[in-house]
Design a protein around this nucleic acid. Sequence first.
DNA 1: CGGTTTCATCGACAGGTGTCAATCTACCAG
DNA 2: CTGGTAGATTGACACCTGTCGATGAAACCG
Lengths: 107, 107
Amino acid sequence: MKPLPVIGACCAPGAQPIAADDAQALADRFKALADPTRVAIVNRLAGADEVCVCDLVEDFELSQPTISHHLRLLREAGLVEAERRGTWAYYRLVPEAIDGLRVALAG
Amino acid sequence: MKPLPVIGACCAPGAQPIAADDAQALADRFKALADPTRVAIVNRLAGADEVCVCDLVEDFELSQPTISHHLRLLREAGLVEAERRGTWAYYRLVPEAIDGLRVALAG
DNA sequence: CGGTTTCATCGACAGGTGTCAATCTACCAG
DNA sequence: CTGGTAGATTGACACCTGTCGATGAAACCG
């Protein structure tokens, strides 16, 4: 798991050149949001403190493995984090990660 | 070419639920930034008013068709726009499109 | 203990994506 | 008109990705 690198402004007028590594790291995080299901999951998590996986499986009309797959990608990108409590797993947003992307889009 | 739909906050704590269409539209625009070369191109365009395609082909060590391909994806996502002057083509950032993404990431 | 539930992982498959060489289409200079 | 240059398009290829069914792993219940 990467330590969630902090990348400065890059994509609005006036931004300074960024290194190839940073472009790669940014692309990786944007890739996590490059799917409508994952955008919807993030949106769902943004509306509550935490959400049980079982609720996500009910909300979206996708198989449980597919939801699990998307959650993993979001987790690996550092955008969400999971906590296991007994039989259930609860997912939360990582606001700092979203902030990081917003900052990167600034000028 | 889509009319660049405006989508409200979606991905930070406190955001309201968004429609499936909006999740799709957002994912499409994030997908345009889900590649390191395209992030670097956007960063390059952010540092100048406009950039000639010939300069991009020189800067990045990729073939001219590949650069052209990435520019098309960015254009179709509405993140950049092109202007043809004589033999050369000049690309510019569309700041409103970047702003739209930044707003979507807000809470 | 055995059975059930929740979630993650695996294997497979169709469709999408990044890349390049080759080609095509303006446009400009003689 | 001829030749040269800039950029877009095409075709091909390897690789990645979203999806599902089947299986595994861990916790709970009776």
